[in-house]
Design a protein around this nucleic acid. Structure first.
Length: 489
RNA sequence: GGCCCGUUGGUCAAGUGGUUAAGACACCGCCCUUUCACGGCGGUAACACGCGUUCAAAUCGCGUACGGGUCACCA
């Protein structure tokens, strides 16, 4: 029997949820769930200086919004807790000491100043730590310890040979051991480094697939050497291609704040739906066998396959995200659309009853972001000041003269209309066009211009009149007529 | 700079030795139409380069170029 797949999302509580992190979380979730496995949440808060208050809430809230339900975590517990690294502090020390006693790691008493100067002279020594404390005598170590000298614990890396590991997406990767420095396992404050805590926890929590961005590719041999030092089985590595952002000068680099809204909540605030974000980022670096594009999270789980992950970096494209957003909006049941749109409707019409369903019907096929709604329907709240030339339209065969006639007849007919709803308005106007012997456009163009006060509108004359209500609609038509008359004088 | 990884249209990408090199976004055009969208139809546009292997290379190998990542008591 194969062991159960277990993946983990291990964010640091340092602030926002970046889409890169979210994409990693998504893939970790998909890899676990598509194999019937478990998805674990672990908080990596070993850097006390970068800890941000409230960051934990953002993590929970984001996972909840996108629907990535974890099976174990700080809030849920589980058989392998605690799930917060700061609560596991003593554990790491124990393992680090074990390596020291086995001669696989050593205490390093070098000061930060010394390390810095080493860093500055990297040209000559090839960079990195010079292993100064690697062979300190036991007496010397004892003396320094007795004097209370601060120290870190470093792993002894092999000086010769090379380390090879297999990555599921990138294949075998080999790095010469001389490229690896004696990495710090335990910091002088007693906290483990990310690399160390990661290995200990992944092993202890029985993580089977280590999934992360490809920026970790070149440090993975260090992890392997650590597993080796403990005699533990190495997990399956799945490195994901990076998500890139386009820079102002046209170049690309790892997606970050400077590329605009790259935090999950930033995108939400901008009007992108979490479903669209999930759908889109799933396709950044992964492609299903059948090339399908529209997926719910559940469908992603059903269709996910690790071999569809690609190696090359993908540029984050807001246009495509927007397209997904629009697709999802158009596919919504009308009630759901209305529910999402209502807050924006209310932004313009704080109170009162309007034909919301008419408005929704007009907007749903046109909206790509809910946050665009106020800008799209501002003309409904207040008649914009528009140039008379707007009445001239070649295709509809309208000009300043016939527009006057059209408006006059329309006003006359509409004034008699009792039931101010779509059907009657539609029938009245269509009937009128026929009666006048003009094409629909010739009548409807001026009516729409007068009703809306702008050339481009979501929806047509009928919907606009209907939403406006009889009184306001007629008022606007008369305003239009006046405007035209004034011009012709 | 060293090391690691990558390179199919502007972007996301399918492709696994023989294809007219898919599809999607964006863009353009036409149709539909009451403007704008939606929808339908169509179009522009790509295998970084060189050398090998092979009857045959986008697919395999090597090199070059370009791009990216990484070189912390950060994760």
């Amino acid at each position: 029997m194969r062991e159960k797949v277990r993946t983990r999302f291990a964010p640091s509580p340092t602030g926002m949820m970046h889409v890169g992190n979210l994409r990693t979380a998504l893939f970790e979730y998909l890899i676990a769930k598509s194999a019937g496995g478990d998805f674990i949440l672990r908080i990596e808060d070993t850097d006390r200086e970068r800890y941000v208050e409230g960051a934990l809430d953002i993590i929970y809230r984001t996972l909840d919004m996108v629907g990535l339900k974890h099976d174990e975590g700080p809030d849920l517990g589980g058989g392998y807790g605690p799930y917060v690294q700061s609560e596991r502090k003593d554990l790491y020390r124990k393992y680090a000491e074990q390596l020291v006693s086995e001669g696989k790691a050593y205490r390093c008493f070098c000061t930060k100043e010394r390390l810095e100067s080493l860093h500055e002279s990297k040209e000559e020594n090839g960079g990195g730590y010079d292993r100064h404390c690697r062979n300190l005598s036991a007496e010397e170590v004892g003396r320094l310890l007795a004097a209370g000298t601060p120290y870190v614990i470093r792993q002894k890396m092999p000086i010769e040979g090379s380390t090879t590991f297999d990555d599921v997406v990138y294949g075998p990767i080999t790095i010469e051991n001389r490229e690896l420095e004696d990495q710090i396992l335990l910091k002088s404050d007693g906290y483990p480094t990310y690399n160390f805590a990661n290995v200990i926890d992944d092993h202890l929590m029985k993580i089977t697939h280590v999934v992360r961005g490809s920026e970790y590719l070149s440090s993975t041999p260090k992890y392997n050497l650590l597993y080796e030092a403990f005699g533990w089985d190495v997990p399956t590595y799945v490195h994901l291609p990076l998500i890139m952002g386009k820079n102002a000068d046209g170049s690309v680099s790892k997606l970050s704040k400077r590329h605009g809204s790259t935090g999950f909540h930033d995108l939400i605030e901008e009007g992108y739906l979490s479903r669209a974000i999930v759908n889109y980022i799933a396709l950044l670096g992964w492609c299903p066998k059948d090339n399908r594009e529209l997926f719910t999270l559940e469908e992603l789980v059903e269709n996910f396959s690790i071999d569809g992950i690609s190696k090359s970096p993908a540029v984050f494209d807001y246009d495509k995200l927007l397209w997904f957003n629009g697709e999802i909006i158009r596919a919504m049941p009308r009630e759901e659309f209305l529910e999402n749109a209502m807050p924006y409707f209310r932004q313009l019409f704080p109170q009162g009853d309007y034909s919301w369903d008419v408005l929704a019907g007009v907007l749903q096929p046109r909206v790509t972001k809910f946050s665009d709604i106020p800008g799209m329907i501002g003309f409904l709240k207040e008649l914009p000041d528009y140039p008379v030339d707007d009445y001239i339209n070649k295709k509809s065969k309208t000009n300043l003269e016939n527009s006057v006639a059209m408006l006059k007849s329309a006003i006359a007919k509409l004034e008699e209309l009792g039931d101010w709803t779509m059907e009657p308005i539609h029938d009245t106007l269509m009937g009128l066009a026929q009666e006048l012997g003009v094409k629909n456009g010739t009548l409807l163009w001026p009516v729409r211009i007068a009703a809306a006060g702008t050339k481009v509108t979501p929806g047509g004359a009928i919907e606009i009149l209907c939403f406006l209500g009889k009184e306001e609609a007629l008022r606007r038509l008369n305003v239009g007529l006046e405007k035209l008359n004034k011009e012709s004088v």
